[in-house]
């Protein structure tokens, strides 16, 4: 056992092996949840991951901001007295980009953990199921808020540079922020619920796109039919059935937006209240479904 006999006893052994115990702080469950949140938020833009996974989210972010920058440049150059697009309208116009973003990043956030069975590993840490769901939900909603609020910020800064009316612009900007915050929560919830059903990322992407585009396609077609047939009352009610028209309804009722519905027939105040309730209910429902989904994943 010659090699096992350290010449200078313990000292040598300790030096050779160098195992150090950790007696620093252990920050526990809420810190772990925050760590998962920041890792997931960074991951939603490919940070801390391969170059390949940065391409799409970064590209979509740029695509979101470029039209805003152009509008601002035009407004400044032409000394226009208003921006060509309302703050609240911007996300509606750019909904395809937003849908693509949530379709690509929701599966990235949750399907990977399921597919590579990292979820059980998380639950062997101090966090609970609810912490995992909250961290993932908050991270994707934050990522979407960054995506949708950044162009509004570009518009707002540009509007101030173009010396447009400060009060008007600030009010519009604030209304826009509230609207995209709601949109971020709703889209993040829907995207995560759909993606968490399958460990296959491809299926997740396709399913999220399908749900968002099919519901919007069906709703806007039905609204157009209702409009041509003169049943304008139905237009607002039909709008409850797709995520983007839901947001449109909420903001045209309460956030000073002009409705993008056919003929501009947005919901009345009473109908608007239903829109708010349905939106909040849907967000809560996606959260509940996610909790149920992960309670079963266990180990």
């Amino acid at each position: 056992m010659a090699l096992d006999q350290p010449v200078a006893g313990d000292q040598t052994r300790i030096h050779d092996i160098g195992y150090r115990n950790y007696d620093g702080p252990r920050l526990g469950r809420s810190y772990a949840t925050r760590s998962l949140y920041s890792q997931s938020l960074r991951g939603a833009y490919g940070l801390g991951r391969s170059v390949k996974s940065k391409v799409l989210p970064m590209l979509l972010f740029v695509v979101m901001c470029v039209p805003a920058a152009i509008m601002v440049a035009v407004a400044v150059a032409t000394k226009a007295n208003d921006l060509p697009v309302d703050y609240t309208r911007y996300a509606i116009v750019m909904q395809a980009v937003i849908s693509l973003y949530v379709a690509s990043q929701a599966p990235q956030s949750v399907s990977r953990d399921l597919r590579f069975k990292t979820v059980p590993l998380y639950f062997s840490r101090p966090i609970e199921t609810a912490d995992y769901v909250r961290a993932k939900f908050a991270a994707l909603a934050s990522a979407m808020f960054v995506l949708t609020a950044a162009p509004l910020l570009v518009l707002y800064v540009g509007a101030l540079l173009a010396k447009l009316d400060f009060t008007d612009q600030t009010k519009g900007f604030a209304q826009g922020l509230v609207s995209v915050a709601l949109l971020s929560l709703l889209f993040a919830g829907l995207g995560l619920v759909i993606a968490s059903v399958t460990p296959r990322r491809g299926f997740g992407i396709a399913a999220v796109i399908a749900v968002l585009t099919i519901s919007y396609g069906a709703v806007s077609t039905l609204q157009a039919i209702a409009d041509t047939q003169g049943s304008t009352d139905a237009i607002a009610w039909i709008g409850l059935f797709s995520p983007i028209t839901l947001i449109d309804g909420v903001q045209s009722a309460f956030l000073g937006a002009s409705s993008a519905f056919p003929g501009g027939f947005g919901p009345s105040d009473a109908e608007g209240a239903v829109y708010v309730l349905v939106t909040l209910g849907l967000i809560a429902a996606t959260y509940g479904l996610l909790m149920r989904r992960y309670r079963k994943v266990g180990l």
Binding site: P25, L27, A32, S35, Q39, R49, R112, P120, L121, I127
Partner: peptide, 22 residues
């Protein structure tokens, strides 16, 4: 239980933080 597209260092650092280490 390992994601293939991250390095061992990144993964283990993340799991250390998930255990409460600063």
């Amino acid at each position: 239980c390992l994601p293939p597209d991250v390095s061992a260092t990144e993964f283990v650092v993340h799991m250390a933080r998930m255990s409460g280490l600063p």
